[in-house]
């Protein structure tokens, strides 16, 4: 699965521009699913029909988009001003590199005169242009972090593990799924990082009976970190709540039972900030019982996010186990 994760994280796809990631995923799953389609906003929706009766329509969502930046202005000297696409922290940018769609690379730095921590407005991208006329980047061009995938053995480091690692897990689930009573609809969503937008429209279209989001969550296991219960290597995090949602208690309990039955380590997630596609799926149409399985991740929204590989493979096992039997929400 590491190769798959590497391919996904090294792919280029800021919110709204997910087409390359989508094509990569489509090629991975086209042969193992019964149908697939791309909806009006660009969500990739893949369906596996039930093998036996007694199930429901279960939507599994992982988002394809990654955070990035967009050029807002090219000054006379050819420096590019930019804005954020999703939650970009200025402190993670200085000295970093970004890549535009055509492969062109720029370095980010800051106005020296600006004191203290810079704001995005005090930073710029330098693509080596000598003047505005010479600058190949146009206002409105998006870019993402440029950073290699690194396999540290038990742990993986890359940009965009949020949420390409979720995409990799969902691909594996769609591939390995056997013997389920459920119609499993894998949705690779767009524009999560800018407000859960793809999940909003795809949940309306799919109309699931039950849904799970697969996304990353922050940990509290680094030096002097904010207090958070989640940590790397302790298994998939079964969400209890975050700022945008309370997981459906029966869905959450069912995930816990599954982990215990299969002997999969797990942790419970309570996240004060942040949210996932689950929040918008839950309130779609007349409401959808929704849960979320999270992969604990360090250094979120930086060019070097870190996950534990066993957490990843255990998440695949947990979701496959969850889908094996009929689910009673009564």
């Amino acid at each position: 699965m590491k190769d798959l994760i590497q391919k996904l994280v090294e792919s280029w796809g800021p919110s709204g521009y997910e087409d390359r990631v989508r094509e990569l995923i489509r090629a991975e799953i086209a042969d193992v699913v019964d149908e697939w389609r791309v909806d009006a906003l660009g969500n990739l929706i893949a369906v596996r029909k039930p093998i036996r009766p007694g199930g429901m329509r279960v939507m599994l969502a992982a988002h394809m988009d990654e955070i990035g930046v967009m050029a807002t202005y090219v000054d006379e000297k050819g420096f590019i001003r930019f804005t954020n696409i999703g939650g970009v922290y200025p402190l993670n940018l200085r000295g970093g590199r970004v890549q535009f769609r055509d492969g062109r690379v720029g370095v980010i730095n800051r106005e020296e005169k600006a004191e203290g921590d810079p704001t995005l407005a005090q930073m710029f991208i330098d693509v080596g242009a000598a003047s505005r006329e010479d600058c190949p980047v146009r206002v409105g061009d998006p870019a993402v972090f440029l950073r290699d995938f690194v396999d540290l053995g038990p742990r993986l480091v890359a940009k965009a593990l949020d949420d390409r690692v979720g995409c990799a897990i969902l691909i594996e689930v769609m591939k390995q799924l056997q013997d389920t009573p459920h119609e499993v609809v894998g949705v690779f969503t767009v524009q999560e990082e800018v407000g859960l937008r793809g999940a909003t429209t795809s949940a309306f279209g799919v109309e699931p009976d039950l849904a799970l989001a697969i996304d990353v969550t922050a940990t509290g296991d680094t030096p002097e970190a904010r207090k958070r219960p989640m940590k790397l290597g302790a298994g998939p995090a079964i969400k209890v709540k975050d700022r945008g949602m309370l997981a459906h208690p029966k869905v959450k309990d069912r995930l816990i039972e599954t982990a215990e039955r299969l002997g999969i380590p797990y942790q419970l997630e309570v996240l004060e900030l942040g949210s996932t596609d689950a929040a918008s799926i839950q309130t779609s149409r007349a409401g959808v019982p929704t849960g979320c399985v999270s992969i604990p991740t360090r250094y979120l929204h930086s060019p070097s996010e870190m996950v534990d590989y066993e957490d990843v493979t255990n998440t695949v096992r947990l979701i496959l186990g969850f889908l094996r039997e009929p689910i009673d929400l009564g």
């Binding site: 009006a40 807002t72 954020n84 206002v139 909003t200």
Partner: peptide
């Protein structure tokens, strides 16, 4: 200039299955 303001397109594109 990207990143500034908001318009009705912000709601229209999220309606139903997306526009």
């Amino acid at each position: 200039q990207p990143g500034v303001g908001g318009t009705d397109a912000g709601r229209i594109h999220l309606v139903r299955e997306g526009v």
